[in-house]
Design a protein around this nucleic acid. Structure first.
Length: 202
DNA sequence: ACCCAGGGTCATA
DNA sequence: TATGACCATGGG
């Protein structure tokens, strides 16, 4: 068993996931912050709220009233943090309009320097907003790997995936989306342990 | 009533 | 490097 065959199995099971739903790269950035530790359905509501107020731009969010912002993103939890961080990060994007064109590793470091953006969020932005090949590792990826006998921290797992897969942006996007779908259905559920992804060579 | 969700930061050892 | 506390709403 290798990662490509895992990918093929998951694609056969779930089909294409159509990630990341967004009209603009900046909407991906906003969604990446808002989706932290919450369900995507809650994020969709907040995105709609922001769009209705015409606030889904870097300039708009950078200048938005913080209390209004808190109300609009309340449904995503941690709403005070997220409102504050969203505003600060938007100000950075507003002052650096072409930041997403920065080469992969430099972009990643820049994003990581912003408060509210950790490894997963940075890589989500690099992959889904900037269309650059960085494999996103999330809690489901770690669980899935652990079930397959692979234990490692974020960087180790990312190196494993990036070293075992062709540097293909659409593949990275689809694979991560499929792993999340897999995790939502199996990891931590009653079916956990009956999953077909038992052993992997790497 | 309890558990967790498409995490991140900060303090502590 | 590695835990633990904290952030907080919403759906099961």
């Amino acid at each position: 068993m290798n990662l490509i065959s895992i990918y093929d199995q998951l694609l056969g099971l779930f089909g294409h996931r159509n990630w990341w739903p967004a009209e603009t790269p900046f909407e991906v950035v906003v969604g990446a912050i808002l989706t932290q530790q919450t369900k995507w359905e809650n994020v969709e509501k907040a995105i709609v709220n922001l769009k209705e107020k015409g606030l889904l731009t870097a300039d708009g969010l950078a200048e938005a009233d913080i209390e209004e912002l808190e109300g609009l993103v309340r449904c995503t939890g941690f709403y005070r943090q997220k409102a504050r961080r969203l505003k600060d990060i938007s100000r950075f994007f507003s002052m650096n309009p072409v930041i997403l064109e920065t080469p992969t590793y430099e972009l990643r470091d820049v994003l990581l320097s912003l408060k509210g953006i950790g490894h997963e969020t940075a890589d989500s932005i690099v992959l889904y907003a900037a269309d650059k090949p960085k494999f996103v590792i999330d809690a489901y990826t770690k669980k899935m790997c652990k079930c397959m006998g692979i234990d490692g921290d974020y960087t180790e797992l990312q190196s494993l995936f990036e070293g075992s897969l062709p540097k293909d942006v659409p593949l990275y996007k689809e694979f991560h989306a499929l792993i999340v779908e897999y995790g939502k259905r199996f990891c931590g559920k009653k079916m956990c342990g009956e999953c077909m992804l038992v052993k992997i060579d790497y």
